[in-house]
Amino acid sequence: MNTNTVNSKKAIAQLTIVRIIVYIILAILTILCLFSFYMLIINSTRSNGELQGGFTLIPSTHFIQNLVNAWNDSSINIPRGMLNSFLIAALSAICATYFSALTAYGIHAYNFRGKKFAYWFILAIMVIPSQVAASGFVQICYKFGLTNNYLMLILPGIASPVVFFYMKQYMEAVLPMEIVEAARVDGSNEFFTFNRVILPMLKPALAVQLIFTFVASWNNYFLPSLLLTKSELKTVPIMIAQLRSADYSKFDMGKVYMFILLAILPVVIVYLILNRNIIKGVTSGSVKG
């Protein structure tokens, strides 16, 4: 009896120590993740003079002023950039999500010759880096005058293997064929069934993929930077890179921080609201081991 209580006390003490260490590690990682963003927010509230003056963790009072300055900057038209980015990101998210769901449904619900091939083909192309196509794609766009055309950034999303794969897995989990058959008996044609019966059933998956594809497009830098040459058509990441290549020492640093903040803010807001769903969505689309 006695040794038992001693042992169990020892075990509890051990567990407590382990727990404390774990929380310390978590605290360090949390600081590591958040510190740079905290600095960003603090610095976006400080004037250029304050920023040159020294380091502080306490916010200042120049947030609005920096915002107005950044918003009205003549060389970097950030409101226009955000509007452009939003337009491209929203449309490509809708395109990618809708057509991936449609493709996944085509393979999930129907039996046709070549179905297996189509499935494996899509899985195989998932790992080909998009940059491999870039050279030819950019060349075609220049040749046919399709640079500065948003469609060239939106339409490729129709073929999104990763989104397809996620949708396919989701359908396997939630979509019984009986529903499709019931709709057939009820007199619905196949296209109508997909739009009115199937899509509403996929809402959670659609929402997750809309977020992911929107964020991916909003953050996308490589291809837009090669295709968008007109300044009024440029997206936010291109403007950020422009900021970097400008002689920034002449810049108002408060404004620079404000630009960065504006670039990431929409995604951060969405993330703060929907992080639970987003994190759930990360796992359900991945390959099961």
Binding site: G106, F137, A159
Partner: peptide
């Protein structure tokens, strides 16, 4: 219908990925 539903994906893939890859 299966073929019709997967067609947009493959058409987009051929135009925006496969053809550029071949040209590359």
């Amino acid at each position: 219908w299966g073929l019709i539903f997967i067609a947009p994906f493959f058409i987009a893939y051929i135009i925006f990925s496969l053809a550029p890859q071949i040209i590359t």
